[in-house]
Design a binder for these strands. Sequence first.
DNA 1: GAATGGATGTCATACACCTGTCATATAAAT
DNA 2: ATTTATATGACAGGTGTATGACATCCATTC
Lengths: 229, 229
Amino acid sequence: MNIDILVVDDEPAIRQMLGFALEGAGYTFREAGNAEETFVEINNATPDLILLDWMMPGMSGVDVARKLRRDTETRQIPIIMLTARGEEDDKIKGLDCGVDDYVTKPFSTRELMARIKAVLRRSEDPLEPATLTVDTLRLDTESHRVLVGEKNLELSPTEFKLLQFFISHPERVYSRAQLLDLVWGDNVYIEERTVDVHIRRLRKILAPYDYDKLIQTVRSVGYRFSVHE
Amino acid sequence: MNIDILVVDDEPAIRQMLGFALEGAGYTFREAGNAEETFVEINNATPDLILLDWMMPGMSGVDVARKLRRDTETRQIPIIMLTARGEEDDKIKGLDCGVDDYVTKPFSTRELMARIKAVLRRSEDPLEPATLTVDTLRLDTESHRVLVGEKNLELSPTEFKLLQFFISHPERVYSRAQLLDLVWGDNVYIEERTVDVHIRRLRKILAPYDYDKLIQTVRSVGYRFSVHE
DNA sequence: GAATGGATGTCATACACCTGTCATATAAAT
DNA sequence: ATTTATATGACAGGTGTATGACATCCATTC
């Protein structure tokens, strides 16, 4: 969940400023001072987003963007182009190199962060909406509801995620550690016993409809969501 | 099924760039460099959509748009206005002159294509009913009014748009970010928390009629407009 | 041109609800 | 009976929302 942003600008001062702002916003960042370094960095690891300066000595930002867009490997990396005022008049208007957004210097950190957020949001693939069903138990991701017949169940966020995971991965045992990884996400430092508690809470909610037995304990292994027995 | 787009801009380079992008996207395009040519082209054949530059020598884009909107023949042609950044004030006027959308230069072709698609879809769709209703709550898009029974509710512009969006997209959760995109529009960068405040204001207005509960909070996800409980 | 009023974005604070953890009870293996 | 693993209730801090207040920006009016 660590979002990695590559800053490409020939001026170290600007890179530093951007780096500071980005880290403040919780992103990790890498930097490149010219086209070559850029490709090296990208080859190193594909960043989640590139901030690309328009004017650079040698290969300009536009050229870099064009090249990135040509290669299948890098085509889908979101790019935000940084331009200076005055450059926007004639040249930029006519030239488009397929970048996702432009930000004009000088810009406020807030605006830049907002645009980064927006671009990242657009690039992530939308979850396919679905209604998952077991008997009369329905979990609808679109309306984010859980229903038994017409009756609405009140689940907390974690309970919802847990049930969603179970219902879409039935008939298979998961250890507490696996559940923590898959439902809570990697990089969580949580007691395994905590899983028990959430299982308990989920069962309690399902109990009035006898669906608590869908969640089965597999002693010394973990839990399983199963329609049988 | 050949969609015909008329590009109006005084700079040939820009027309060429746009033409290239449009043809790449499967549209056919024609061009006009000034107001006169525009009317000639339109008279020739009614285009499916017009891309109109804001700044042009002589008769400006706004004037062209106004004129097109006045004539019954051309009133329904969708128009997307191309503006330069910094013309913020003018943007609003542009919208007032009946333009369907505007795009700020410099823009990415991706964005432009997305907007063209959106505008075309809107204009083709069987017009959404002018009056949207939930129980005794009525929102009339034409008179721009919201009524409960015979009682008129006073909504600010944003509140109206928000309610309109909700009432036409019920039973589905939207994150704050999505609401910002869909109600406020892309390219608007404001705090997500601001959504809470507008939700609050809208609820406050609906509360006397108990309709505030139509707008439901989905913790850690967003909001949902729902008729159910 | 100053003044008034509405609309809107942002904050600070109050609040409600989650959540992770622990202690203890209970059940299952050995 | 003893050991081991899970179930359960309680609780304190943390997180996400609701809400009121405020500053700004515009448009309108005097």
